[in-house]
């Protein structure tokens, strides 16, 4: 018996490892399998603490996927016995964050208002939340400024807030819509943070050469075939690939500046 009732221990192990390794389909299946267990943990948080059920679910999903990335099956601990700690911790952190009486400076409040306005405008125009890059473009803040504000400036909520909001009071069952939304939002964040990282460091042509050469997303091609497709010689395609790999290597091993070069 595993935390996900429909899986054998072996299936669960494979699913967790695949999800932890970045397989998005496996992430999706893992969340589907464990959503009832996450929902059950979410229901243990009392109503009226100023945190929406959907927010708890979202954090729970993030906690589950974090656990999958950290879980080592060789240690012998059943996955849910391990993951439930991180799911609960993620929810507890959210509750602490949202109920903490944090007073923001006037400047921070104004900055947050600008971010909120940009986000709402983007939502109105495009129907989806903006990415960090889109927010930086719209507000003029740097990514660093945005992250700082977001780290410390979630809207404070009182622990003595209303007992139920948005018609969720007393509801023990989690709606599929909530669950789906929770998962999609967490998945988007993961994709943005991890999946695109390496590829983002490459130019379009470099990406094309590497993907084609190694059969990523299509049949593998020789450098000669790739060169022909791009109107280049095979040697030029090889040079582009070598430069791309060198660029990735450099980015992954970039040293901190030496002491004598600091300002």
């Amino acid at each position: 018996m595993t935390g996900a009732a429909r899986l054998s221990a072996d299936q669960e192990r494979h699913l967790v490892v695949a999800a932890g390794s970045g397989d998005l389909d496996a992430c999706r299946r893992l969340v589907e399998e464990f959503l009832p267990a996450i929902g059950s943990l979410a229901r243990r948080f009392p109503h009226g603490i100023g945190v929406q059920r959907q927010e708890l679910l979202q954090e729970g999903v993030a906690g589950l996927l974090f656990a999958a990335r950290r879980y080592d099956p060789d240690l012998g601990t059943p996955f849910w016995a391990y993951a439930s700690y991180w799911v609960r911790k993620a929810m507890q952190d959210l509750v602490a964050e949202l109920t903490m009486p944090v007073a923001l400076s006037d400047r921070a409040v104004r900055a947050l208002a600008a971010i909120r306005a940009a986000r709402n405008e983007h939502l109105r125009r495009h129907g989806v939340d903006p990415t960090t890059d889109q927010l930086t473009e719209a507000t003029g803040f740097t990514r660093d400024q945005l992250h700082r504000l977001q780290a410390a400036a979630r809207t404070p909520r009182s622990v003595s807030g209303p007992a139920a909001r948005d018609g969720e009071g007393g509801a023990e069952q989690l709606g599929d819509g909530h669950a789906e939304l929770a998962f999609e939002q967490v998945l988007d964040a993961i994709e943005t943070r991890e999946v695109r990282d390496l590829a983002e460091r490459l130019g379009e042509r470099e990406r094309t050469v590497i993907r084609a050469h190694y059969g990523l997303g299509g049949p593998a091609q020789t450098l000669k075939q790739i060169g022909q497709g791009l109107g280049l010689t095979a040697e030029r395609a090889r040079q582009i690939e070598a430069a791309a790999l060198g660029k990735l290597r450099e980015a992954l091993a970039r040293p901190a500046p030496p002491l004598d070069s600091a300002p």
Binding site: S21, G22, D23, L24, E194, V195, R196, L198, A199, I210, R211, Y214, L216, G217
Partner: peptide, 8 residues
């Protein structure tokens, strides 16, 4: 293996 992990 997923594409981005293959590159890794």
């Amino acid at each position: 293996v997923p594409e981005h992990r293959t590159l890794d």
